[in-house]
Design a protein around this nucleic acid. Sequence first.
RNA 1: GCUGACGUAGCUCAAUGGUAGAGCAGCUGAUUUGUAAUCAGCAGGUUAAGGGUUCGAGUCCCUUCGUCAGCUCCA
Length: 555
Amino acid sequence: MAPSEIQVVLPDGSTKTLPAGATGADLAKAIGPGLAKAALAIRVNGDVRDLQRPLPDGVKVSILTDKDPQALDVLRHSSAHVLATAVRQLFPKAQIGFGPPIEDGFYYDFDIGRPFTPEDLEAIEQKMAEVTKQDYPFVREEVSRAEAKKRFTDDPLKLERIGDLGPNEVISVYTDGPFVDLCRGPHVPSTGRIKHFKLLHAAGAYWRGDERRQMLQRIYGTAWFSKQDLDQYITRLEEARKRDHRVIGKQLDLYSIQEDVGPGLILWHPNGAILNFELRRFIEDIILQRGYQLVYTPHVTREQLFLRSGHLPLYAANQFPAMAAGEGESEEVHYRVKPMNCPMHILVYASQQRSYRDLPIRLAEIANVYRNERSGTLHGMLRVRGLSMDDAHIFLREDQIEEEIFNLLDIVELVMGKTFGLQYRLDLATRPDKKLGDDRMWDVAEQALESALKRRGLTYRMDIGGGAFYGPKIDIKFNDAIGREWQGATIQLDYELPERFKLEYTGADNKPHRTVIHGFPDRAFRGSVSALAVAGAGSGAADLRRAARRGAGRA
RNA sequence: GCUGACGUAGCUCAAUGGUAGAGCAGCUGAUUUGUAAUCAGCAGGUUAAGGGUUCGAGUCCCUUCGUCAGCUCCA
Protein backbone atom coordinates (compact mmCIF):
# COMPACT_ATOMS: atom_id res chain seq x y z
CA MET A 1 0.00 0.00 0.00
CA ALA A 2 1.15 3.51 -0.76
CA PRO A 3 2.21 5.46 2.28
CA SER A 4 -0.09 8.35 2.98
CA GLU A 5 2.60 10.49 4.48
CA ILE A 6 6.19 11.48 3.76
CA GLN A 7 8.92 12.85 5.96
CA VAL A 8 11.55 15.39 4.94
CA VAL A 9 14.59 16.62 6.81
CA LEU A 10 14.95 20.37 7.24
CA PRO A 11 18.33 22.18 7.31
CA ASP A 12 18.29 22.37 11.14
CA GLY A 13 18.07 18.56 11.29
CA SER A 14 14.43 18.42 12.36
CA THR A 15 11.94 16.43 10.36
CA LYS A 16 8.63 17.49 8.97
CA THR A 17 5.78 15.17 8.10
CA LEU A 18 3.62 15.99 5.12
CA PRO A 19 0.85 14.27 3.18
CA ALA A 20 2.13 12.19 0.28
CA GLY A 21 2.36 14.22 -2.89
CA ALA A 22 3.07 17.43 -1.04
CA THR A 23 5.16 19.93 -2.96
CA GLY A 24 7.89 22.33 -1.97
CA ALA A 25 5.28 25.07 -1.89
CA ASP A 26 3.19 22.99 0.50
CA LEU A 27 6.19 22.52 2.74
CA ALA A 28 6.90 26.25 2.81
CA LYS A 29 3.27 26.92 3.69
CA ALA A 30 3.41 24.32 6.44
CA ILE A 31 6.45 26.00 7.97
CA GLY A 32 5.04 29.49 7.90
CA PRO A 33 3.24 32.09 5.80
CA GLY A 34 6.30 34.34 5.67
CA LEU A 35 8.42 31.60 4.19
CA ALA A 36 5.64 30.61 1.80
CA LYS A 37 5.72 34.12 0.42
CA ALA A 38 9.50 34.35 0.22
CA ALA A 39 10.10 30.86 -1.17
CA LEU A 40 11.51 30.74 -4.71
CA ALA A 41 12.77 27.19 -5.12
CA ILE A 42 13.81 24.23 -3.06
CA ARG A 43 17.00 22.24 -2.73
CA VAL A 44 16.26 18.51 -2.58
CA ASN A 45 19.28 16.42 -1.65
CA GLY A 46 21.48 19.09 -3.18
CA ASP A 47 19.49 19.55 -6.41
CA VAL A 48 17.63 22.78 -6.92
CA ARG A 49 14.03 22.20 -8.00
CA ASP A 50 10.79 24.06 -8.50
CA LEU A 51 8.45 24.46 -5.57
CA GLN A 52 5.62 22.91 -7.55
CA ARG A 53 7.15 19.42 -7.77
CA PRO A 54 6.03 16.75 -5.31
CA LEU A 55 8.66 15.91 -2.71
CA PRO A 56 10.01 12.39 -2.45
CA ASP A 57 10.01 10.70 0.94
CA GLY A 58 13.02 10.94 3.24
CA VAL A 59 14.95 13.67 1.45
CA LYS A 60 16.96 16.52 2.87
CA VAL A 61 15.41 19.79 1.83
CA SER A 62 16.17 23.44 2.10
CA ILE A 63 13.87 26.16 0.88
CA LEU A 64 15.57 28.83 -1.16
CA THR A 65 14.71 32.49 -0.77
CA ASP A 66 16.34 35.57 -2.24
CA LYS A 67 19.12 35.23 0.32
CA ASP A 68 20.49 32.13 -1.36
CA PRO A 69 23.02 32.58 -4.18
CA GLN A 70 21.59 29.55 -5.96
CA ALA A 71 18.22 31.27 -6.06
CA LEU A 72 19.82 34.06 -8.06
CA ASP A 73 20.62 31.60 -10.84
CA VAL A 74 17.02 30.44 -10.80
CA LEU A 75 15.80 34.02 -10.97
CA ARG A 76 18.05 34.73 -13.93
CA HIS A 77 17.08 31.58 -15.74
CA SER A 78 13.45 32.58 -15.32
CA SER A 79 14.34 36.09 -16.52
CA ALA A 80 15.68 34.53 -19.71
CA HIS A 81 12.29 32.91 -20.20
CA VAL A 82 10.56 36.23 -19.63
CA LEU A 83 12.85 37.72 -22.26
CA ALA A 84 11.90 34.97 -24.69
CA THR A 85 8.24 35.45 -23.83
CA ALA A 86 8.52 39.13 -24.72
CA VAL A 87 10.46 38.48 -27.92
CA ARG A 88 7.90 35.93 -29.06
CA GLN A 89 5.11 38.41 -28.52
CA LEU A 90 6.86 41.11 -30.52
CA PHE A 91 8.32 38.74 -33.11
CA PRO A 92 5.94 35.78 -33.34
CA LYS A 93 8.15 34.07 -35.91
CA ALA A 94 11.28 34.26 -33.77
CA GLN A 95 13.01 30.91 -33.39
CA ILE A 96 14.42 30.23 -29.98
CA GLY A 97 17.79 28.75 -29.06
CA PHE A 98 19.26 28.48 -25.58
CA GLY A 99 18.66 30.83 -22.68
CA PRO A 100 20.74 30.02 -19.60
CA PRO A 101 21.69 32.04 -16.54
CA ILE A 102 25.28 33.27 -16.58
CA GLU A 103 27.49 35.08 -14.13
CA ASP A 104 25.76 38.36 -13.27
CA GLY A 105 22.86 37.77 -15.62
CA PHE A 106 21.41 35.75 -18.43
CA TYR A 107 21.07 35.59 -22.19
CA TYR A 108 18.77 34.11 -24.77
CA ASP A 109 19.54 33.30 -28.41
CA PHE A 110 17.00 34.03 -31.14
CA ASP A 111 16.73 33.88 -34.88
CA ILE A 112 14.44 36.62 -36.17
CA GLY A 113 16.05 36.93 -39.57
CA ARG A 114 17.78 40.20 -38.74
CA PRO A 115 19.78 41.73 -35.89
CA PHE A 116 18.09 43.42 -32.96
CA THR A 117 18.31 47.20 -32.88
CA PRO A 118 18.63 49.30 -29.72
CA GLU A 119 14.98 50.30 -30.28
CA ASP A 120 14.04 46.61 -30.34
CA LEU A 121 15.74 46.14 -26.99
CA GLU A 122 13.77 49.00 -25.48
CA ALA A 123 10.53 47.59 -26.78
CA ILE A 124 11.44 44.12 -25.54
CA GLU A 125 12.33 45.42 -22.11
CA GLN A 126 8.96 47.14 -21.88
CA LYS A 127 7.19 44.02 -22.99
CA MET A 128 9.11 42.07 -20.34
CA ALA A 129 7.78 44.44 -17.70
CA GLU A 130 4.27 43.58 -18.89
CA VAL A 131 5.01 39.88 -18.71
CA THR A 132 6.23 40.18 -15.13
CA LYS A 133 3.20 42.29 -14.25
CA GLN A 134 0.91 39.56 -15.58
CA ASP A 135 2.51 37.27 -12.98
CA TYR A 136 2.18 34.13 -15.11
CA PRO A 137 2.96 31.00 -13.12
CA PHE A 138 5.81 28.83 -14.43
CA VAL A 139 4.22 25.46 -15.04
CA ARG A 140 6.38 22.40 -15.39
CA GLU A 141 5.31 19.35 -17.38
CA GLU A 142 7.13 16.17 -18.19
CA VAL A 143 6.42 14.98 -21.70
CA SER A 144 7.28 12.10 -23.98
CA ARG A 145 9.74 12.56 -26.79
CA ALA A 146 6.94 12.40 -29.35
CA GLU A 147 4.95 14.99 -27.46
CA ALA A 148 8.00 17.24 -27.14
CA LYS A 149 8.60 17.06 -30.87
CA LYS A 150 4.99 17.93 -31.52
CA ARG A 151 5.13 20.98 -29.29
CA PHE A 152 8.21 22.34 -30.94
CA THR A 153 7.47 21.57 -34.58
CA ASP A 154 8.04 25.24 -35.42
CA ASP A 155 11.29 25.47 -33.47
CA PRO A 156 14.00 23.62 -35.38
CA LEU A 157 16.63 24.58 -32.84
CA LYS A 158 14.65 22.99 -30.03
CA LEU A 159 13.97 19.93 -32.16
CA GLU A 160 17.70 19.51 -32.66
CA ARG A 161 18.20 19.67 -28.92
CA ILE A 162 15.47 17.10 -28.33
CA GLY A 163 17.25 14.82 -30.77
CA ASP A 164 20.42 15.08 -28.70
CA LEU A 165 18.75 14.02 -25.47
CA GLY A 166 19.59 10.52 -24.28
CA PRO A 167 16.85 7.89 -24.32
CA ASN A 168 16.51 7.90 -20.54
CA GLU A 169 16.50 11.61 -19.96
CA VAL A 170 13.37 13.22 -18.64
CA ILE A 171 12.05 15.81 -21.06
CA SER A 172 10.41 18.74 -19.38
CA VAL A 173 8.71 21.82 -20.74
CA TYR A 174 7.90 25.02 -18.91
CA THR A 175 5.02 27.34 -19.70
CA ASP A 176 4.67 30.90 -18.55
CA GLY A 177 1.55 32.49 -19.99
CA PRO A 178 1.77 32.42 -23.77
CA PHE A 179 5.31 31.01 -23.90
CA VAL A 180 6.36 27.38 -23.86
CA ASP A 181 9.98 26.32 -23.71
CA LEU A 182 11.88 23.09 -23.63
CA CYS A 183 13.75 23.50 -20.40
CA ARG A 184 15.35 21.58 -17.60
CA GLY A 185 14.37 24.19 -15.05
CA PRO A 186 14.05 25.02 -12.28
CA HIS A 187 12.15 28.27 -12.24
CA VAL A 188 10.74 30.71 -9.76
CA PRO A 189 7.01 30.21 -9.06
CA SER A 190 5.80 33.00 -11.35
CA THR A 191 6.99 35.80 -13.60
CA GLY A 192 5.94 38.37 -11.00
CA ARG A 193 8.92 37.38 -8.88
CA ILE A 194 11.20 39.04 -11.42
CA LYS A 195 11.26 42.71 -10.63
CA HIS A 196 14.71 44.18 -11.13
CA PHE A 197 16.18 43.46 -14.49
CA LYS A 198 17.76 45.23 -17.44
CA LEU A 199 18.70 44.28 -20.95
CA LEU A 200 22.31 45.12 -21.66
CA HIS A 201 23.19 44.49 -25.27
CA ALA A 202 22.65 42.28 -28.27
CA ALA A 203 25.27 40.59 -30.42
CA GLY A 204 25.62 37.74 -32.85
CA ALA A 205 26.40 34.29 -31.50
CA TYR A 206 26.84 31.09 -33.44
CA TRP A 207 24.33 28.38 -32.79
CA ARG A 208 26.01 26.11 -30.26
CA GLY A 209 29.16 28.20 -30.48
CA ASP A 210 30.10 26.57 -33.76
CA GLU A 211 31.26 29.03 -36.37
CA ARG A 212 30.26 26.69 -39.18
CA ARG A 213 26.65 26.96 -38.12
CA GLN A 214 24.10 29.72 -38.43
CA MET A 215 24.43 32.88 -36.46
CA LEU A 216 21.74 33.71 -33.96
CA GLN A 217 21.11 37.00 -32.22
CA ARG A 218 21.87 36.92 -28.54
CA ILE A 219 20.39 39.34 -26.05
CA TYR A 220 22.23 39.77 -22.76
CA GLY A 221 20.51 40.97 -19.63
CA THR A 222 20.95 41.08 -15.90
CA ALA A 223 18.53 40.47 -13.05
CA TRP A 224 18.73 40.93 -9.29
CA PHE A 225 16.55 40.55 -6.26
CA SER A 226 16.64 44.20 -5.26
CA LYS A 227 16.83 47.53 -7.01
CA GLN A 228 19.86 48.28 -4.90
CA ASP A 229 21.70 45.22 -6.20
CA LEU A 230 20.81 46.10 -9.76
CA ASP A 231 21.99 49.69 -9.35
CA GLN A 232 25.18 48.53 -7.72
CA TYR A 233 25.84 46.21 -10.60
CA ILE A 234 25.33 48.99 -13.15
CA THR A 235 27.68 51.22 -11.16
CA ARG A 236 30.20 48.42 -11.05
CA LEU A 237 30.10 48.15 -14.83
CA GLU A 238 30.70 51.88 -15.16
CA GLU A 239 33.58 51.80 -12.69
CA ALA A 240 35.12 48.89 -14.49
CA ARG A 241 34.96 50.77 -17.76
CA LYS A 242 37.04 53.52 -16.22
CA ARG A 243 39.64 50.97 -15.13
CA ASP A 244 39.85 49.38 -18.55
CA HIS A 245 43.55 49.19 -19.33
CA ARG A 246 42.88 50.63 -22.78
CA VAL A 247 41.51 53.80 -21.19
CA ILE A 248 44.25 54.04 -18.60
CA GLY A 249 46.91 53.20 -21.15
CA LYS A 250 45.85 56.24 -23.13
CA GLN A 251 45.43 58.55 -20.15
CA LEU A 252 48.87 57.71 -18.82
CA ASP A 253 50.45 57.54 -22.25
CA LEU A 254 51.67 53.99 -21.68
CA TYR A 255 51.33 52.59 -25.17
CA SER A 256 49.61 52.89 -28.49
CA ILE A 257 48.50 50.60 -31.25
CA GLN A 258 48.56 52.27 -34.64
CA GLU A 259 47.10 51.38 -37.95
CA ASP A 260 50.35 52.15 -39.72
CA VAL A 261 52.10 49.45 -37.70
CA GLY A 262 49.28 46.95 -37.61
CA PRO A 263 46.60 45.64 -35.32
CA GLY A 264 47.69 43.85 -32.18
CA LEU A 265 51.21 45.29 -32.34
CA ILE A 266 52.14 47.48 -29.43
CA LEU A 267 54.28 50.59 -29.36
CA TRP A 268 55.48 51.02 -25.80
CA HIS A 269 55.75 54.70 -24.98
CA PRO A 270 58.29 55.81 -22.36
CA ASN A 271 55.84 55.61 -19.45
CA GLY A 272 54.86 52.10 -20.40
CA ALA A 273 58.35 51.02 -21.31
CA ILE A 274 59.68 51.80 -17.85
CA LEU A 275 57.00 49.51 -16.41
CA ASN A 276 57.89 46.88 -18.95
CA PHE A 277 61.56 47.22 -18.04
CA GLU A 278 60.92 46.92 -14.30
CA LEU A 279 58.71 43.93 -14.76
CA ARG A 280 61.20 42.17 -16.97
CA ARG A 281 63.88 42.72 -14.36
CA PHE A 282 61.55 41.51 -11.63
CA ILE A 283 60.78 38.30 -13.49
CA GLU A 284 64.37 37.67 -14.48
CA ASP A 285 65.52 38.11 -10.88
CA ILE A 286 63.03 35.56 -9.70
CA ILE A 287 63.86 32.92 -12.25
CA LEU A 288 67.61 33.33 -11.85
CA GLN A 289 67.22 32.89 -8.10
CA ARG A 290 65.31 29.70 -8.71
CA GLY A 291 67.76 27.82 -10.83
CA TYR A 292 66.73 28.88 -14.31
CA GLN A 293 69.28 29.79 -16.93
CA LEU A 294 68.64 32.57 -19.40
CA VAL A 295 68.97 31.96 -23.11
CA TYR A 296 68.40 34.17 -26.13
CA THR A 297 67.19 32.77 -29.42
CA PRO A 298 66.41 34.34 -32.82
CA HIS A 299 63.11 35.90 -33.84
CA VAL A 300 63.06 34.04 -37.13
CA THR A 301 64.04 30.53 -38.04
CA ARG A 302 63.91 28.23 -40.99
CA GLU A 303 60.42 26.94 -41.52
CA GLN A 304 61.85 23.44 -41.42
CA LEU A 305 62.26 23.71 -37.66
CA PHE A 306 58.55 24.18 -37.10
CA LEU A 307 57.84 21.28 -39.42
CA ARG A 308 60.07 19.07 -37.33
CA SER A 309 58.49 20.26 -34.09
CA GLY A 310 55.09 19.48 -35.57
CA HIS A 311 53.79 23.00 -35.03
CA LEU A 312 53.44 24.09 -38.60
CA PRO A 313 50.59 21.86 -39.79
CA LEU A 314 48.58 22.62 -36.66
CA TYR A 315 49.56 26.15 -36.03
CA ALA A 316 50.06 27.67 -39.48
CA ALA A 317 46.76 29.55 -39.34
CA ASN A 318 48.10 31.48 -36.37
CA GLN A 319 51.54 32.09 -37.80
CA PHE A 320 52.58 34.89 -40.08
CA PRO A 321 53.26 33.69 -43.62
CA ALA A 322 56.65 32.39 -44.61
CA MET A 323 59.24 34.64 -46.16
CA ALA A 324 61.62 33.54 -48.87
CA ALA A 325 65.21 33.84 -47.83
CA GLY A 326 66.82 33.43 -51.23
CA GLU A 327 69.61 31.29 -49.93
CA GLY A 328 71.83 30.35 -52.83
CA GLU A 329 69.79 29.30 -55.83
CA SER A 330 67.15 27.64 -53.76
CA GLU A 331 63.62 29.02 -53.70
CA GLU A 332 62.70 26.33 -51.25
CA VAL A 333 64.16 27.74 -48.09
CA HIS A 334 61.59 29.76 -46.18
CA TYR A 335 61.77 31.47 -42.85
CA ARG A 336 59.09 32.09 -40.27
CA VAL A 337 58.75 34.54 -37.45
CA LYS A 338 58.50 32.45 -34.32
CA PRO A 339 55.18 32.08 -32.49
CA MET A 340 56.86 30.14 -29.67
CA ASN A 341 60.29 29.28 -28.37
CA CYS A 342 60.13 25.59 -27.61
CA PRO A 343 61.96 24.24 -30.67
CA MET A 344 64.88 26.54 -30.09
CA HIS A 345 65.14 25.82 -26.39
CA ILE A 346 65.08 22.17 -27.27
CA LEU A 347 68.00 22.63 -29.64
CA VAL A 348 69.95 24.29 -26.84
CA TYR A 349 69.30 21.24 -24.67
CA ALA A 350 70.16 18.86 -27.47
CA SER A 351 73.40 20.64 -28.30
CA GLN A 352 75.32 18.31 -26.01
CA GLN A 353 75.08 15.06 -24.09
CA ARG A 354 73.11 15.29 -20.87
CA SER A 355 73.50 13.23 -17.72
CA TYR A 356 70.71 12.36 -15.30
CA ARG A 357 72.75 14.33 -12.77
CA ASP A 358 72.27 17.54 -14.84
CA LEU A 359 68.48 17.40 -14.72
CA PRO A 360 66.38 19.31 -14.35
CA ILE A 361 67.75 21.83 -16.81
CA ARG A 362 65.66 24.99 -16.81
CA LEU A 363 65.98 27.27 -19.81
CA ALA A 364 64.18 30.59 -19.69
CA GLU A 365 63.75 33.45 -22.08
CA ILE A 366 61.64 36.54 -22.13
CA ALA A 367 61.18 36.51 -25.85
CA ASN A 368 59.18 38.47 -28.37
CA VAL A 369 56.97 36.15 -30.34
CA TYR A 370 54.42 36.88 -33.02
CA ARG A 371 51.12 35.18 -33.62
CA ASN A 372 48.66 36.01 -36.33
CA GLU A 373 45.61 35.95 -34.06
CA ARG A 374 42.16 36.20 -35.61
CA SER A 375 41.24 39.82 -36.00
CA GLY A 376 38.08 39.55 -33.94
CA THR A 377 39.91 38.29 -30.87
CA LEU A 378 42.32 41.20 -30.51
CA HIS A 379 41.87 43.26 -27.39
CA GLY A 380 44.09 46.10 -26.19
CA MET A 381 47.26 44.66 -24.72
CA LEU A 382 45.62 41.50 -23.50
CA ARG A 383 45.18 39.78 -26.83
CA VAL A 384 47.82 40.89 -29.27
CA ARG A 385 49.80 39.70 -32.26
CA GLY A 386 53.22 40.56 -30.90
CA LEU A 387 54.07 39.89 -27.29
CA SER A 388 56.93 39.36 -24.92
CA MET A 389 56.46 35.92 -23.55
CA ASP A 390 57.99 34.94 -20.27
CA ASP A 391 58.78 31.46 -21.38
CA ALA A 392 60.66 28.56 -19.83
CA HIS A 393 61.23 24.96 -20.73
CA ILE A 394 62.33 22.54 -18.12
CA PHE A 395 63.96 19.30 -19.13
CA LEU A 396 63.56 16.64 -16.51
CA ARG A 397 63.08 13.01 -15.56
CA GLU A 398 59.67 11.59 -14.97
CA ASP A 399 60.36 11.23 -11.24
CA GLN A 400 61.11 14.95 -11.01
CA ILE A 401 57.80 16.22 -12.36
CA GLU A 402 55.93 16.61 -9.11
CA GLU A 403 58.68 18.47 -7.28
CA GLU A 404 59.21 20.80 -10.20
CA ILE A 405 55.53 21.66 -10.53
CA PHE A 406 55.37 22.15 -6.78
CA ASN A 407 58.10 24.79 -7.02
CA LEU A 408 56.58 26.36 -10.09
CA LEU A 409 53.23 26.90 -8.40
CA ASP A 410 55.10 28.94 -5.82
CA ILE A 411 56.39 31.26 -8.55
CA VAL A 412 52.86 31.63 -9.89
CA GLU A 413 51.59 32.64 -6.47
CA LEU A 414 54.51 35.01 -5.94
CA VAL A 415 53.92 36.83 -9.22
CA MET A 416 50.19 36.66 -9.83
CA GLY A 417 48.97 36.54 -6.25
CA LYS A 418 51.42 38.26 -3.93
CA THR A 419 52.79 40.84 -6.33
CA PHE A 420 49.83 41.74 -8.51
CA GLY A 421 47.05 40.73 -6.17
CA LEU A 422 45.22 38.89 -8.90
CA GLN A 423 42.45 36.46 -8.13
CA TYR A 424 43.48 33.59 -10.34
CA ARG A 425 42.04 30.17 -10.90
CA LEU A 426 43.74 26.88 -11.57
CA ASP A 427 42.34 24.33 -14.00
CA LEU A 428 43.88 20.88 -14.20
CA ALA A 429 43.32 19.66 -17.75
CA THR A 430 43.57 15.91 -18.23
CA ARG A 431 43.97 13.56 -21.18
CA PRO A 432 41.74 14.12 -24.20
CA ASP A 433 40.33 11.32 -26.37
CA LYS A 434 42.89 11.85 -29.08
CA LYS A 435 46.18 11.67 -27.34
CA LEU A 436 49.76 10.69 -27.70
CA GLY A 437 51.51 8.02 -25.66
CA ASP A 438 50.23 5.26 -23.42
CA ASP A 439 47.94 5.45 -20.41
CA ARG A 440 50.72 4.70 -17.93
CA MET A 441 52.54 7.82 -19.00
CA TRP A 442 49.39 9.92 -18.61
CA ASP A 443 48.71 8.38 -15.20
CA VAL A 444 52.14 9.39 -13.98
CA ALA A 445 51.88 12.88 -15.40
CA GLU A 446 48.37 13.66 -14.21
CA GLN A 447 49.04 12.29 -10.75
CA ALA A 448 52.21 14.34 -10.48
CA LEU A 449 50.36 17.53 -11.37
CA GLU A 450 47.51 16.79 -9.03
CA SER A 451 49.63 15.89 -6.05
CA ALA A 452 51.72 19.03 -6.54
CA LEU A 453 48.50 21.06 -6.43
CA LYS A 454 47.39 19.19 -3.34
CA ARG A 455 50.70 19.59 -1.55
CA ARG A 456 50.42 23.32 -2.08
CA GLY A 457 46.95 23.15 -0.63
CA LEU A 458 45.54 24.91 -3.68
CA THR A 459 41.99 24.65 -4.87
CA TYR A 460 41.63 23.83 -8.53
CA ARG A 461 39.01 22.78 -11.01
CA MET A 462 39.22 19.61 -13.04
CA ASP A 463 38.98 20.05 -16.77
CA ILE A 464 38.49 16.44 -17.77
CA GLY A 465 39.71 15.81 -21.30
CA GLY A 466 40.84 19.41 -21.63
CA GLY A 467 44.53 18.65 -21.93
CA ALA A 468 46.57 18.96 -25.11
CA PHE A 469 47.13 15.82 -27.13
CA TYR A 470 50.78 15.92 -26.11
CA GLY A 471 50.32 16.20 -22.37
CA PRO A 472 48.24 17.38 -19.41
CA LYS A 473 48.44 20.95 -18.17
CA ILE A 474 47.48 23.40 -15.48
CA ASP A 475 45.88 26.54 -16.87
CA ILE A 476 46.04 29.70 -14.83
CA LYS A 477 43.21 32.10 -15.53
CA PHE A 478 42.34 35.52 -14.18
CA ASN A 479 39.70 38.18 -14.61
CA ASP A 480 40.47 41.69 -15.77
CA ALA A 481 39.02 44.93 -14.44
CA ILE A 482 35.94 44.59 -16.60
CA GLY A 483 35.33 41.07 -15.44
CA ARG A 484 36.44 39.19 -18.49
CA GLU A 485 38.40 36.00 -18.10
CA TRP A 486 41.85 35.63 -19.62
CA GLN A 487 44.31 32.83 -19.88
CA GLY A 488 47.42 33.71 -17.91
CA ALA A 489 50.20 31.22 -17.60
CA THR A 490 50.03 27.59 -18.59
CA ILE A 491 52.05 24.84 -17.03
CA GLN A 492 52.12 21.97 -19.42
CA LEU A 493 53.87 18.69 -19.82
CA ASP A 494 54.98 17.70 -23.27
CA TYR A 495 55.73 14.16 -24.38
CA GLU A 496 55.51 14.96 -28.05
CA LEU A 497 58.49 17.22 -28.56
CA PRO A 498 61.06 15.02 -26.77
CA GLU A 499 59.96 12.24 -29.08
CA ARG A 500 60.21 14.32 -32.23
CA PHE A 501 63.63 15.67 -31.30
CA LYS A 502 64.83 12.42 -29.73
CA LEU A 503 65.81 14.12 -26.50
CA GLU A 504 67.80 11.92 -24.20
CA TYR A 505 69.82 11.83 -21.07
CA THR A 506 72.18 9.15 -19.86
CA GLY A 507 70.82 7.45 -16.75
CA ALA A 508 72.55 5.99 -13.75
CA ASP A 509 72.29 2.70 -15.59
CA ASN A 510 74.47 4.16 -18.35
CA LYS A 511 71.61 3.79 -20.82
CA PRO A 512 69.80 6.50 -22.79
CA HIS A 513 66.38 7.63 -21.50
CA ARG A 514 63.76 9.88 -23.01
CA THR A 515 63.64 13.31 -21.42
CA VAL A 516 60.35 14.89 -20.40
CA ILE A 517 59.77 18.54 -21.13
CA HIS A 518 57.62 20.71 -19.18
CA GLY A 519 56.88 24.13 -20.49
CA PHE A 520 55.94 27.25 -18.66
CA PRO A 521 54.96 29.72 -21.29
CA ASP A 522 53.19 32.70 -19.98
CA ARG A 523 51.63 35.17 -22.27
CA ALA A 524 50.44 37.51 -19.60
CA PHE A 525 53.47 38.58 -17.64
CA ARG A 526 54.95 41.02 -20.05
CA GLY A 527 52.77 40.97 -23.08
CA SER A 528 50.49 43.02 -20.94
CA VAL A 529 52.20 44.60 -18.01
CA SER A 530 49.83 47.45 -17.44
CA ALA A 531 46.86 45.22 -18.15
CA LEU A 532 47.99 42.94 -15.36
CA ALA A 533 48.48 45.76 -12.96
CA VAL A 534 45.18 47.34 -13.88
CA ALA A 535 43.38 44.04 -13.79
CA GLY A 536 44.48 43.68 -10.21
CA ALA A 537 43.24 45.51 -7.20
CA GLY A 538 40.88 48.46 -7.38
CA SER A 539 43.83 50.65 -6.52
CA GLY A 540 45.55 49.50 -9.67
CA ALA A 541 45.03 52.74 -11.52
CA ALA A 542 46.45 54.88 -8.74
CA ASP A 543 49.48 52.65 -8.30
CA LEU A 544 50.09 52.73 -11.97
CA ARG A 545 49.90 56.49 -12.07
CA ARG A 546 52.55 56.71 -9.38
CA ALA A 547 54.72 54.21 -11.17
CA ALA A 548 54.36 56.06 -14.44
CA ARG A 549 55.30 59.33 -12.79
CA ARG A 550 58.35 57.76 -11.23
CA GLY A 551 59.21 56.39 -14.61
CA ALA A 552 58.86 59.75 -16.26
CA GLY A 553 61.04 61.42 -13.64
CA ARG A 554 63.71 58.85 -14.11
CA ALA A 555 63.80 59.17 -17.86
C1' G B 1 37.27 34.87 -39.42
C1' C B 2 31.75 35.76 -38.71
C1' U B 3 27.47 39.24 -37.10
C1' G B 4 26.44 44.08 -35.56
C1' A B 5 27.74 49.11 -34.05
C1' C B 6 31.28 52.75 -34.83
C1' G B 7 35.62 55.92 -37.14
C1' U B 8 35.22 64.33 -37.15
C1' A B 9 41.59 68.60 -34.19
C1' G B 10 46.68 65.41 -29.74
C1' C B 11 42.18 63.98 -26.14
C1' U B 12 36.61 64.07 -25.10
C1' C B 13 32.71 65.25 -28.19
C1' A B 14 29.11 68.73 -31.50
C1' A B 15 27.40 69.76 -36.60
C1' U B 16 17.67 68.73 -40.17
C1' G B 17 22.22 66.76 -47.51
C1' G B 18 23.84 73.56 -47.70
C1' U B 19 30.63 77.90 -45.39
C1' A B 20 33.40 71.66 -40.24
C1' G B 21 32.69 73.78 -34.31
C1' A B 22 33.39 73.59 -28.65
C1' G B 23 36.00 72.24 -24.14
C1' C B 24 40.67 70.39 -22.56
C1' A B 25 45.78 69.96 -24.28
C1' G B 26 49.50 73.01 -27.43
C1' C B 27 51.85 77.86 -28.89
C1' U B 28 52.45 83.55 -27.86
C1' G B 29 51.83 87.26 -24.35
C1' A B 30 49.94 89.09 -19.66
C1' U B 31 49.27 87.53 -14.48
C1' U B 32 53.01 85.51 -9.41
C1' U B 33 47.93 84.26 -6.91
C1' G B 34 49.89 77.84 -1.72
C1' U B 35 49.03 72.39 -4.70
C1' A B 36 42.80 69.73 -10.40
C1' A B 37 41.20 74.31 -13.74
C1' U B 38 43.97 82.88 -13.99
C1' C B 39 43.17 86.20 -18.48
C1' A B 40 43.74 87.46 -23.73
C1' G B 41 45.20 86.01 -28.40
C1' C B 42 47.03 82.31 -32.02
C1' A B 43 47.43 77.86 -34.34
C1' G B 44 45.41 73.14 -35.16
C1' G B 45 41.21 69.16 -40.26
C1' U B 46 41.91 65.96 -47.76
C1' U B 47 35.83 64.43 -41.51
C1' A B 48 40.12 56.58 -41.58
C1' A B 49 41.26 55.54 -47.10
C1' G B 50 39.22 54.95 -52.03
C1' G B 51 35.05 55.11 -55.29
C1' G B 52 29.76 56.40 -56.36
C1' U B 53 24.82 59.25 -56.07
C1' U B 54 23.82 64.70 -55.93
C1' C B 55 23.85 71.50 -58.09
C1' G B 56 26.03 70.36 -53.26
C1' A B 57 28.29 64.67 -48.95
C1' G B 58 31.11 64.53 -42.21
C1' U B 59 25.88 63.16 -43.25
C1' C B 60 23.16 58.66 -48.47
C1' C B 61 25.35 53.99 -51.30
C1' C B 62 29.66 50.51 -52.32
C1' U B 63 34.74 48.69 -51.28
C1' U B 64 39.01 48.51 -48.17
C1' C B 65 41.44 49.45 -43.42
C1' G B 66 40.83 50.00 -38.27
C1' U B 67 38.19 50.17 -33.37
C1' C B 68 34.41 48.18 -30.09
C1' A B 69 30.88 44.14 -28.46
C1' G B 70 29.65 39.08 -28.88
C1' C B 71 30.62 34.08 -30.92
C1' U B 72 28.13 26.78 -25.73
C1' C B 73 28.93 29.59 -18.22
C1' C B 74 25.00 23.74 -22.96
C1' A B 75 17.22 22.48 -23.21
